[in-house]
Write a protein that binds this DNA or RNA. Sequence first.
DNA 1: TAATATAGCTAAAAGCATTTAGCTTTGGAT
DNA 2: ATCCAAAGCTAAATGCTTTTAGCTATATTA
Lengths: 343, 343
Amino acid sequence: MAKKKYSIKKIAEDLGISVTTISFVLNGKAEENRISPAMIEKVKRHVKKIGYQPNQLAKSLRTGKSNLIVFMVEDISNPFFANIAKLIEDEASKLNYKIIYCSTNNDPDKTMSMINLFGNLQADGFIITPPNGLDVNFVKELCEEQAPIILFDRYLPEVDCSHVVIANYEGTKLGLNHLIDSGFHKIGFITLDSDQSQMHDRLEAYQDLCANHSMTAKILKIPFYAFKSGEESNLINNFLDENPELDAIFFATNYLAIRGIKLLKDRGVIIPNDLAVMAFDDNDFFQFSTPSISSIVQPKSAIATQLIELMFQTLETDIDQRKPVKVELPVSLNIRSSTKNCN
Amino acid sequence: MAKKKYSIKKIAEDLGISVTTISFVLNGKAEENRISPAMIEKVKRHVKKIGYQPNQLAKSLRTGKSNLIVFMVEDISNPFFANIAKLIEDEASKLNYKIIYCSTNNDPDKTMSMINLFGNLQADGFIITPPNGLDVNFVKELCEEQAPIILFDRYLPEVDCSHVVIANYEGTKLGLNHLIDSGFHKIGFITLDSDQSQMHDRLEAYQDLCANHSMTAKILKIPFYAFKSGEESNLINNFLDENPELDAIFFATNYLAIRGIKLLKDRGVIIPNDLAVMAFDDNDFFQFSTPSISSIVQPKSAIATQLIELMFQTLETDIDQRKPVKVELPVSLNIRSSTKNCN
DNA sequence: TAATATAGCTAAAAGCATTTAGCTTTGGAT
DNA sequence: ATCCAAAGCTAAATGCTTTTAGCTATATTA
């Protein structure tokens, strides 16, 4: 009693009618093709009875539309991306779209080969956190000629492509100003050594602020590989040793902050008495940590909503009418214990 | 200069040969079909030059194989699942498989309709954390007649289906015994009110242990909806008020523990002096929390490896030769500060 | 020289759905 | 009685690939 795989052809035989009729009924095109109500009813009933569902591959092959959206993030196990992924998936499934996701691991070659791969799967759209070094022309061509691409989290300054990012510059300023307003005036900045736009903007905000307040910029750039291999602690230790005058540290990402705070505790540093701490991008850990950590919060659900709305809006627009849409969402400040001035 | 979409047919025309020849070359079947080396070279060169890649939809439609594996978890934004997802994706992409993921949200109806949906996409296999109430017959039929299914994290006792789970019973015993060995003898157990196998096994371990040590079982079962809506704090508060004699709490999941620890701190409870704490399933937070929290650690990468190996092994086996494979992986104990007896 | 084997390639079917163009039948108008 | 329009349905092409069965030369054998 192996379950028969129904095809539209088989149904046509069963019912003694043509496949065309069935296809019309199934796709809501029965009326406009003058299929009689009796026939519509007959088809619908039978289809329901046997639980037939059309083969999506054949459908996609014919229509050129796969209802698949590729979601490529740096790393899905990063809670920020996982959260966005979930929100996007929920929205997409309402519209009968499926999400294929994959991690770029910040590898531009892997990313390109993935895009090619999914392109052959006739993916309808791409949402991507572009890794450093992604070939600009490659993205350009895709943007112009193929499936819509929306970059997020960061953008590529050289490419005129739709994107959804947050106000990294203003957000960093917001956080730094809060530190200054709280009486911290010797702020160190720990970031990744990265060219990506979001990191660039955060750093720039810090540098501008230093210039405006006649502060000496104290910057530590941690290479990506050093972070991956856990070697960042030496770098941070050196940085702290060389700059004992600092009264606050701004971490440019939450994962840097998590490692950094652990290290500070190991060094016996009392937060915020010895050193105030603030991080860009919130994290569950910051809320529950002792002391709790102040952070700049990205509006996750707004990001997800924007991404998916922009995607569907683009998909609905004729390919030659499409224009890049660039969205920058505001961030907010979550003030907790780690920036409370106790002196 | 819109990029031409190449098809095998177009290449055949360009080269003045048949599509069959090209297909043979592309699929490594040239030799066995006596295509001359010169011809093979000619085709390969041209294909490479124009960067042609076959349409996967058409290929899948013809071969019945999509190279797509569906990964359905309760919630991708749970770090445990996100981590496994990443590991699986890495393995799968090595073998040219793609992962489609989606969240069940523990909704059996959504899960079934998703499975149907992806079934029509000709997904080659399913890896699923089955939600409570998932129709047993539905899964049974699928297991027997369709794409291979591997359950993980929990299994359905009524269904004879492949699964990869961890030793929940032994793991819980391990944790509880550590508490007892450390001198805690009045251990409360806080869990979700759930029928899922993993929760059931954890609870059973606690009950057996109580019986063996003549301990009175003190159990709090938090309904899922209460947790979702944040109402669990009242329940936990009541539980603590009613059982002031407790000297340790075992949380059956990490997210229960995270909420619970926050609440304990709010009540002014000192961990572990007033109350020792242990959690099932590790979490970054436990490592960085003050005090750090002891936990039972699931072997994530072993789980991922098993899942993907089992999946490919099953896919390679003839459908009538397949037998359910049931894997139970051991867990380990991560002893931290929250179970240190200070008295 | 005729029959046969082999090398080298291809035509056409199949996989499943959508969609265009067109074929019957019926009813109404003239 | 004849013609036309509309109603109601369908044949066949199409999307792109894989794969079976088979065709045509050339080479080998008897």
